[in-house]
């Protein structure tokens, strides 16, 4: 790899967003987003469908360019104008749609764009790295020489996660990484998140599963309709969190819980 930024000290601010806005034509996907990520910290990004979580991740991955706002990385203002640049700076991403090439095999996908010895591909070394990485994630992948098209959804997700680890990043962003995973693999991914946090990396995780979020997150950042809607700790009650996500204390989640509680009360009485 090229000369990478030094490893940041624990607690140091790696990434900070100020007033980041992204418009797609008439749609404002993100408005005035403020976000800080520190080394050795797991930040959970939560919000309803269409809240703008994936858009924010794509802005940081260099896939989309923000319409307005500034991004600071390691204390310096940066423009992330291509995915290659973000990767080179040490921002790795697992996209919600995974972004894998179905016609290539697992090894080729893992090393895509960063193959070992570009003029004489070192297939053996790449395959060995692939197996060790996948083992770390407790992956259940029968063969790394089969095209991605033949893998299950969860296996593909594991490949995408493994790929993000390959380049020794400073920040990892995982957009719903456990959505398709089995019980053991989800636990492995959560373990992995803790491991990379302890190594001093910053982690952004997007998930709709509040249990997972509470299990690993140090801070919970809520987005609602493309805007910041509060920062919470994992100790925050479910009710407050749901209220921040949906924007009302009176919502379908609280109504349902109220109904269940009432029913439970009714049967015991």
């Amino acid at each position: 790899m090229q000369a990478r930024e030094r490893l940041p000290a624990k607690g140091e601010r790696i990434l900070s967003l100020r007033g980041v806005t992204k418009r797609f034509g008439a749609v404002s996907a993100l408005t005035d987003i403020e976000l800080d990520i520190h080394a050795g910290e797991v930040v959970a990004l939560v919000g309803d469908n269409g809240a703008g979580k994936s858009t924010l991740v794509k802005v940081l991955a260099g896939v989309h360019q923000p319409t307005a706002g500034s991004i600071e990385y390691m204390g310096r203002p940066v423009t992330l104008d291509s995915p290659a640049k973000a990767l080179e700076m040490g921002i790795a991403t697992v996209f919600q749609d995974l972004a894998l090439c179905e016609n290539l095999d697992v090894v080729a996908n893992l090393f895509l764009g960063h193959e070992l010895s570009p003029w004489r591909l070192d297939e053996v070394q790449m395959e060995v790295r692939a197996w060790t990485l996948l083992k770390e994630l407790a992956a259940r992948i029968p063969s790394v020489r089969e095209p991605i098209a033949s893998l299950s959804g969860g296996q593909r997700q594991t490949v995408a996660i493994a790929r993000s680890l390959l380049l020794d990043p400073r920040i990892i962003m995982l957009d719903e990484p456990t959505a398709a995973l089995g019980v053991a693999q989800t636990a492995e991914v959560l373990n992995l998140i803790e491991r990379v946090r302890d190594r001093g990396l910053g982690v952004i995780i997007i998930s709709h599963n509040m249990e997972d979020v509470r299990a690993v997150a140090d801070r919970i950042v809520v987005l609602r309709l493309g805007r910041n809607n509060g920062v919470f700790t994992p100790e925050t009650s479910n009710q407050d969190l749901v209220a921040a996500i949906t924007g009302a204390t009176e919502n379908s989640v609280s109504r349902r819980q109220g109904r269940l509680a009432a029913e439970a009360g009714g049967t015991t009485a």
């Binding site: 990767l87 972004a99 090439c101 179905e102 016609n103 764009g113 960063h114 790929r163």
Partner: peptide, 12 residues
């Protein structure tokens, strides 16, 4: 040729 967008996101 297989997935242009995935290739771009891999830094190609």
């Amino acid at each position: 040729g297989g997935n242009r967008e995935a290739a771009r996101r891999s830094g190609i």
